[in-house]
Simulated assay, not measured.
Amino acid sequence: MSPGDYGTKAVPSYIAAEAETTPLPKITVPEPAPPASPPRKLGDLPMRVVYKVVAVAAGVAVLGAGAAVVLLNRDDPDTMAAAPRQSAVVGLPSAVSASSASSAAAPAAGAAATPGLSPLSSPLSSPAVSPAASVAASPDAVDPALAAALKDPRVPALPKADRRLRDLPGRAAATRGLVKDRRSGVALPRFAKGWALATPTPFASRQLLPRVKGASYRGMLVSCPVPIPEQETLRDTAFLAARWTLNHHPSGATITWTASQPMKAGKRKGWLLGYTVHYTLKGEKRVSAAALALVDVPEKKPAVVFVTIPDSQKKRWRDINTVMSSVRAL
């Protein structure tokens, strides 16, 4: 047996200790990757997130419905008129219903605005209003002078229907030509008897009846440019002018209407008012017959022709008809 060949015998420990050994390879165990987060379920989300999602979805649905209402109903007056009635049927106040509809339709109106509406308005919340309704709903829009006259207890509102000036009693005086008031732009009859021309100030023309013994008030016929603020219509301007004539009647005088009608002053339009003036003199109730013609004068303020005759001179009342039928624009 050769040296180092021990056969199947056990190798002595001291020999095994001295034998060469091969170093073991280093084994590295890789760390496992963290498992992917499983998808969250609705029950795992915080409630505030759920509420936000629901609110956004509801908002989108409302906006879509509002846009559809605006696009479908923008040219359908029957649908627009029926909207307030629908809110009443379901028991909601119409103001609340209109407000909600306006809020819902506002974004859609911003994207495709309906002509004639404010971006903050909707067809349901902005119905058309007639000028008459606007004035009734907004008294501040009325001229202050007219608003004051409508509240004046001395002057009742004009008759709603036209009322023609009737023939007054008495015998009309003769006339001779016309008084041409170029300052006012009108011509009126000049009476030949009974009446006398007088200093016009503060008017543009003036004629007077003679004084009656024991009476401090006498008949007067004058013309001038309208001395009050001009209104939208000849009728309203004439109404204010008639109120102004109370300044030339005894204190405390009041009016009752006898006529209110459109008139022609030559080729120009006008408005005629007839009225009775009531007042008290020396404790006695008295009246005057009066009339006023307001004439539309080109390129000037309207002209006023005003005549008043007290009952102490009632034989001259028919002259009022002569004046009103003879007024002409120059």
Rank of each mutant, 00 (worst) to 15 (best):
M1E: 11
D5S: 14
G7A: 05
V11N: 07
S13I: 09
I15A: 15
A16D: 09
E20F: 00
T21D: 03
L24M: 07
I27E: 14
V29N: 01
S37I: 08
P46T: 10
P46G: 09
A57E: 06
G59C: 13
V60Q: 11
G66I: 02
V69A: 13
V70Q: 07
L71S: 07
L72R: 13
L72K: 10
N73G: 12
R74N: 00
R85V: 00
S87M: 11
A88D: 12
G91N: 06
A98E: 13
S99G: 11
S100L: 12
A105D: 01
A105S: 06
A109I: 06
G110D: 12
S125P: 04
A133R: 15
V142T: 11
A145Q: 06
A149Y: 08
A157Q: 10
L158T: 06
A161Q: 14
D162M: 00
A172E: 04
R176Q: 14
D181K: 01
L188G: 04
R190F: 03
A192F: 09
K193E: 15
G194W: 00
W195S: 10
F203M: 07
S205H: 04
R211N: 12
V212K: 12
G219T: 05
M220R: 13
V222R: 02
P227G: 05
P227W: 06
I228Y: 00
E230P: 08
Q231W: 05
A238Y: 07
A238G: 10
T245R: 03
A253P: 02
T254D: 13
A259H: 07
S260N: 07
A265P: 01
K269I: 05
L272Q: 09
V277D: 03
L281P: 07
K282T: 05
A289C: 08
A290H: 08
V304T: 10
F306M: 10
V307G: 12
I309H: 01
D311N: 12
R316H: 12
D319F: 06
T322D: 05
M324H: 04
S326T: 15
R328S: 10
